[in-house]
């Protein structure tokens, strides 16, 4: 094993370097957990895309004669509803499949919005400094000082309850974490000699910020983004629970979980399956994020 690794290395130097994507995959592949997470994300994404084809029932159809049917393998279960039905007789599996759409949508959108805005504000305030930095950072401190759910609720109340506004609210609430992280890394990277060297070569502020400093700040941001993905799904669920996020009967995982809380004693499946869906998705993103960070770090490359 080690012998082949050594020969691989020596021949690699002589050959043309592999395509960056192939190289990336080789390093990513070393972390098995990350690969499992990646495949699960791929699976969930496919499920979300082809929800209309895969789902056995409509997520909104209420089968009044089959309220709270247990999963197929339990007594009284039927294969018509493989994971049972909820309190108004909707098929759990179909709702979960359609819910994947919404939850992924919420997660991706929140992370994209907050990451983009956070990087922009963080790196400019870290690089420019002075009054601009003070203003941005104090504003972020104020946002951090308020309880996040309260702030999100306030924003949704102003904008009006809907899933889009909930997404926007969550993106704003998690923004300070990204801004602080980016600024902190930018401040340490900015003083290093390689940045000065680029400046001596004539690099402008845009190049220095986004092409020289930013790539060196990415490691904590990637981790924060994958963790933020799970927070976003959970926060969206909390807002949904308070009637400020996804409006019924939209099948959003968090809202499903929240709505079914009262049945946890007599119909465990109504709560367990949305919970497991959130757990596995969040776990998959965390694992994949971990592997992504390692694969993108050149210091860990041979």
């Amino acid at each position: 094993m080690s012998a082949t690794a050594i020969t691989d290395y020596s021949t690699q130097a002589a050959q043309a370097p592999p395509h960056p994507l192939i190289e990336f995959w080789q390093y990513f592949n070393e972390n098995k957990g990350a690969v499992v997470g990646f495949y699960f994300i791929l699976f969930i994404s496919l499920v979300a895309i082809f929800a209309d084809v895969i789902a056995p029932h409509s997520p909104f159809e209420q089968y009044r004669d089959a309220i709270l049917t247990p999963p197929a393998w339990q007594d009284g279960g039927t294969w018509t509803y493989p994971l049972g039905t909820d309190d108004v007789g909707r098929d759990m599996l179909s709702r979960l499949i359609h819910g994947a759409r919404l939850s992924l949508f919420v997660g991706v959108l929140v992370v994209t919005l907050s990451l983009a805005a956070g990087i922009l504000l963080g790196i400019t305030s870290g690089y420019i400094g002075g009054y601009f930095e003070t203003m941005v950072m104090r504003l972020m401190d104020i946002m951090l000082a308020l309880p996040s759910l309260l702030l999100a609720m306030a924003i949704v109340t102003i904008l009006g309850p809907s899933l889009q506004n909930a997404i926007l609210a969550i993106a704003i609430v998690v923004l300070p974490h990204y801004v602080r992280l980016t600024r902190a890394s930018a401040l340490t990277e900015k003083t290093k000699d390689y940045v000065t060297a680029s400046r001596v070569c004539g690099a402008g502020p845009f190049r220095l910020m986004f092409l020289v400093i930013l790539p060196n700040c990415m490691a904590p941001l990637i981790v924060q983004a994958t963790l933020g993905f799970s927070t976003a799904i959970l926060d969206a669920a909390a807002l949904g629970f308070l009637g400020m996020g996804a409006q019924p009967p939209i099948p959003e995982w968090g809202a499903m979980l929240a709505n079914a809380l009262q049945f946890v004693q007599r119909a465990w499946w109504v709560v367990t399956f949305p919970g497991l869906a959130i757990l596995f998705t969040v776990l998959a993103f965390n694992l994949a994020g971990d592997g992504l960070r390692d694969a993108l770090d050149p210091k860990l490359k041979r």
């Binding site: 290093k192 000699d193 390689y194 000065t196 060297a197 680029s198 001596v200 070569c201 004539g202 690099a203 190049r207 020289v212 790539p215 060196n216 050149p298 210091k299």
Partner: peptide, 29 residues
């Protein structure tokens, strides 16, 4: 005018390959 710094561990961008580091001045100028 160009400069060589004291600490060779801090003066090279760890995220870039040697080729990219050397070509940056040409890219800009």
């Amino acid at each position: 005018v160009q400069i060589v710094f004291q600490d060779p561990y801090g003066s090279l961008n760890p995220r870039k390959k040697v080729g990219a580091i050397l070509e940056e001045p040409l890219k800009i100028n």
